[in-house]
Simulated scan of single mutants.
Amino acid sequence: MIKEIIVVEGKDDTVAIKRAVEAETIETGGSAINADVIRRIKLAQERRGVIVFTDPDHAGERIRKIITKEVPGAKHAFLTQEAATSKGDIGVENASVEAIRTALANVRTDGRNEESAITWDDLMEAGLIVHPRAAARRLAMGNRLGIGYCNGKQFYNRCRMFQISREEFEAARRELNEKEGATS
């Protein structure tokens, strides 16, 4: 049984989570997250902790940002778009049991109060910003680091928020460069 309550978008996500692990969920009801749902998430965070596990799409990111702002200290689980896609539909409900378990095993904790060694210069040198393939490289790096896809500014913020170490960052960068070198 997972101690924390998992925050998902809807009923189908709850079904998928319960297929993979023994856990309780709070459903946001989609991207129209309201004050009552936020109050329930805050209470869950105070009593047991929460894991935000939203779809790897625009609506899911919007919900994640709202919860991150309103509920400090929430944990986050991420699926890649590939792992959450079935027949063109993206969502937690489409992920395999193994993908859900892996995402929950790699939960990231919000550590905004601590400084990260990752800098803007690191992102630039890694080709994650101001680079012709920056978006594709951020997608690959985000998947390797377990923080999902986002724009350059949000990628930087997530590196800080989830305390991505320089060692983790450099290992993911090497792996990405080796993969790209092999496909060139």
Rank of each mutant, 00 (worst) to 15 (best):
V8K: 06
V8Y: 01
A16I: 05
T25Q: 07
T25N: 07
E27C: 15
E27G: 02
S31G: 11
D36G: 09
I38Y: 08
I41D: 11
K42F: 04
L43V: 13
L43P: 00
L43W: 04
L43G: 12
Q45H: 09
R47W: 00
V50I: 15
F53D: 10
P56N: 09
H58G: 00
A59Y: 02
V71E: 05
V71K: 03
G73F: 01
A74N: 11
L79E: 12
Q81F: 04
E82A: 14
S86I: 06
S86T: 12
G88L: 10
D89V: 15
G91E: 04
G91N: 08
V92N: 11
N94S: 09
A95R: 10
S96M: 10
A99Y: 07
A99V: 05
L104S: 11
L104W: 14
R108L: 03
T109F: 01
T109S: 07
T109G: 07
D110M: 02
D110C: 00
I118G: 02
T119A: 04
M124V: 05
M124K: 14
A126P: 05
G127K: 04
G127V: 02
L128Y: 08
H131N: 15
R133E: 15
R144F: 04
G148S: 08
G148K: 00
C150R: 02
G152E: 00
G152V: 09
Q154L: 10
R158P: 01
C159E: 03
M161K: 05
M161C: 01
Q163G: 03
A171R: 15
A172I: 03
E175A: 15
E175L: 13
L176T: 08
E178H: 08
E180V: 13
A182G: 11
T183A: 15
